[in-house]
């Protein structure tokens, strides 16, 4: 009996975590994307976690990001830029910082074509399994719900058969 209770509690925890995972990954919304491809707004938003990146792959024009103004600003000579930044009270960046930020911006918008021999930012050697963990939980949630539904249906069928006998 205690084993059944423990199993029940674990299953409930998995289902609750899976429900959270569904909303975190925007699972349902992204599953039905294909059925509303005409709604361009939906495909432009989204991605993993809030304000995620995947949807941004569709944005290819810098003006979509308000990037044109920033690009012009960054093309100014250092002295002028530093003076303007000082006037605005902002932090003065050196060239390497600017360069790294520009690379990050490129990565953010998925505009990695043309950065040498077709290589892209996604080829990194990084392992970040947070999202994979959430996908696993959602997967486990579907499995647990199916197992319990199956058990329920079998129970109903058995009771029905008993009544008929």
């Amino acid at each position: 009996m205690s084993k059944k209770i423990i199993n029940g509690i674990i299953s409930l925890a998995i289902v609750i975590a899976a429900l959270y995972g569904l909303s975190r990954l925007r699972f349902i919304e992204r599953s039905i994307w294909i059925f509303k491809t005409n709604d361009m707004q939906n495909t432009r938003r989204g991605g993993f976690e809030r304000g995620g990146r995947e949807g941004r792959d569709f944005r290819t024009r810098p003006q979509d990001f308000g990037g044109r103004e920033r690009q012009n600003f960054e093309n100014l000579p250092d002295s002028v830029r530093q003076r303007l930044l000082a006037e605005r009270g902002a932090r003065v960046e050196n060239d390497s910082l600017r360069e790294s930020r520009a690379l990050n911006d490129t990565a953010e918008r998925g505009d990695f074509r043309g950065r040498g021999e077709g290589r892209d930012f996604r080829r990194g050697q990084s392992v970040r399994l947070v999202n994979v963990g959430w996908f696993f939980i959602v997967f486990a949630g579907f499995t647990v719900i199916t197992i319990y539904l199956d058990m329920l249906l079998k129970l109903i069928k058995r009771k029905k058969n008993q009544k008929e006998c």
């Binding site: 992204r30 997967f139 499995t143």
Partner: peptide, 19 residues
């Protein structure tokens, strides 16, 4: 994206039925 999400859900159900 859509097909992979739906397929993952179907995989979960498939595993549940073969538990």
């Amino acid at each position: 994206t859509s097909s992979s999400f739906i397929t993952l859900a179907l995989f979960g159900i498939h595993l549940g039925l073969h538990w």
